[in-house]
């Protein structure tokens, strides 16, 4: 490197030091708040409400127990899981075939469809909950798992389409053609060649769909009354809930998301980044 060669070693060393400490600082900035939340979640209610706070948890589960035993929480957790699973199934079930079609065929109307998908990005989608609340009331989907999952699917579907599109585009069509010449029908070629190759990526995009639904607050709060999801429950209880309930709840929200993101870390950049273009 020409510019480093002309710089004195001491300056270079200092630059290196700034660089490393910058990275450490950024890591602390990202991780410290999560750590602090976990400290709260793993302390007793008295400690959470007391002052001053210890920066090391007492590893007491009573806050979490209080949270889990609180009326409606288990139900809300269960609803969150159900909504997220239905969202995952719907968005992959509808999105993957569309992604496959976009990656493999040229046909009139392709651009119109792509435009429709990309356009959803320019709209504040949680607002859909407003008109859909009325529509669901008419068809009996109000305050239901399926109703909310449908709204969450509008959030997750465009991503599922674009992610699977880039995923399938990464699998050469030549492989499928080879399967055709070796005796496969179109469907067999998909099942025996494309699916095994795309499966990990599809699983990763399914996880993204799950996380999108799991984290969504506005539509959940608008559309559910009795069958609250965890986010809706926490949101609606903000006014009166004690601190230890809030923080244990936040920890319960964060943990699965962290695990899922860790599970799909390999795909984070390859898919999410490129599918977003």
């Amino acid at each position: 490197m020409s510019d480093t060669a002309t710089v004195a070693p001491s300056v270079r060393k200092a630059g290196r030091w700034v660089f490393v400490s910058g990275i450490v600082l950024l890591c602390v900035w990202t991780l410290l708040p999560i750590y602090l939340l976990m400290v709260n979640a793993l302390s007793t209610p008295e400690e959470v409400n007391g002052f001053p706070k210890s920066f090391i948890p007492s590893f007491d589960l009573s806050s979490l127990r209080f949270f889990l035993e609180f009326e409606g929480v288990l139900n809300a957790l269960w609803n969150s899981i159900r909504v997220a699973v239905v969202t995952m199934i719907l968005s992959i079930g509808f999105g993957a075939p569309a992604g496959y079609a976009l990656s493999r065929f040229d046909f009139p109307g392709k651009e119109v469809f792509r435009f429709l998908v990309v356009m959803t990005r320019a709209f504040p989608l949680p607002l859909l909950a407003l008109p859909l609340a009325v529509m669901f009331l008419r068809v009996g989907l109000d305050d239901s798992v399926l109703g909310l999952a449908l709204v969450h699917t509008t959030l997750a579907l465009p991503f599922a389409v674009l992610i699977t599109y880039s995923l399938f585009s990464g699998i050469p069509f030549e492989l499928e053609e080879a399967a055709f010449t070796l005796g496969c029908t179109r469907f067999q070629a998909f099942r025996k060649v494309v699916l095994p190759l795309a499966a990990p990526g599809i699983a990763a995009s399914a996880v993204f769909a799950f996380v999108i639904s799991w984290n969504e607050v506005f539509a959940a709060a608008v559309l559910t009354i009795k069958n609250r999801t965890l986010t809706a429950f926490l949101m609606q209880s903000l006014d009166w809930s004690p601190l230890h309930l809030k923080f244990a709840g936040a920890a319960a929200l964060v943990l699965p998301a962290l695990i899922f993101i860790f599970a799909v870390r390999k795909y984070l950049f390859a898919m999410w980044g490129i599918a977003n273009r």
Binding site: C27, L31, I34, E216, L253, V254, A257, L258, L268
Partner: peptide, 16 residues
């Protein structure tokens, strides 16, 4: 590590 907050909901971030 930098990507972790990607999985965290806005409500949880507010509570954190």
């Amino acid at each position: 590590i930098f990507a972790i907050p990607l999985g965290i909901s806005d409500l949880a971030a507010g509570l954190i």
